[in-house]
Computed example of a mutant assay.
Amino acid sequence: MEERKQKSLSDKILYAVFWLICIFFIASFLFIVIIFTGNMHYTSMLVTGVMVLYLYYLFYLFNFFTTKKRKQWVLGVMGMALVISAITPVKKIYENNIPTVDAELNVWDYQPFMEPLKIATLEEESTFKITEDLPRLDGATALYPLYASFAQAVYPEKTYEPYSSEVMVNTTPDAYNNLIQGKVDMIFVAGPSKGQINHAKRNGMELKLTPIGREAFVFFVHQKNEVDELSLQQIQDIYSGSINNWQDVGGSDDSIRAFQRPEGSGSQTALENLMGEIPLMEAPTEDIVSGMGGIIEEVAQYKNYKNAIGYTFRFYSNEMVKNDQIKLLNINGIAPTIENIRNNQYPIASEFYLVTTNTDNPHVDEFIEWILSPQGQELVEKTGYVPMIE
Results as ranks from 00 to 15, higher is better:
V74E: 02
I288M: 07
M320Y: 02
A283N: 04
T171P: 04
E206C: 08
E157G: 07
F113V: 07
M388L: 12
E351S: 13
E161K: 05
K201V: 01
I334W: 00
L46F: 14
Y144C: 10
E104C: 02
T359K: 12
E277S: 14
Y60G: 11
I23L: 14
S240F: 09
I326C: 03
A349M: 06
P156E: 07
A16I: 09
E339Y: 12
Q345I: 00
G384F: 10
I309M: 04
M1F: 07
Q223K: 10
T171F: 01
M80V: 13
D102W: 00
G195P: 04
T141M: 07
R4W: 03
L354N: 05
T37R: 08
E104T: 15
E206K: 15
N96G: 08
M78E: 14
Q377K: 09
A81T: 10
N344Q: 15
W370C: 07
Y60A: 03
I295V: 12
T88A: 09
L122G: 04
Q260H: 02
C22M: 13
L9E: 11
Y144S: 13
S164A: 07
D365P: 03
W19G: 03
T37G: 02
A190D: 10
P374F: 12
H41D: 09
V33G: 13
Y160F: 11
Q233L: 09
G266S: 06
L146Y: 15
P284Q: 09
L280K: 09
I180R: 01
K71G: 06
Q325L: 11
H41Y: 09
M168D: 05
Y42C: 10
A270H: 00
N177H: 06
S164F: 14
M40E: 06
A270T: 08
E277H: 15
I235A: 09
L117M: 13
I13T: 10
R4S: 08
G276A: 11
V380E: 03
E157Q: 14
G333C: 03
K194E: 14
V83E: 00
I288Q: 15
D237K: 15
L379M: 12
R4G: 01
L379E: 04
H41E: 12
W246E: 03
Y305T: 10
P192W: 02
I180D: 00
E95Q: 04
K194D: 14
F18K: 13
T66Y: 14
T100F: 00
P387K: 13
Q152T: 14
W246P: 12
K69Y: 07
I238E: 03
L232N: 12
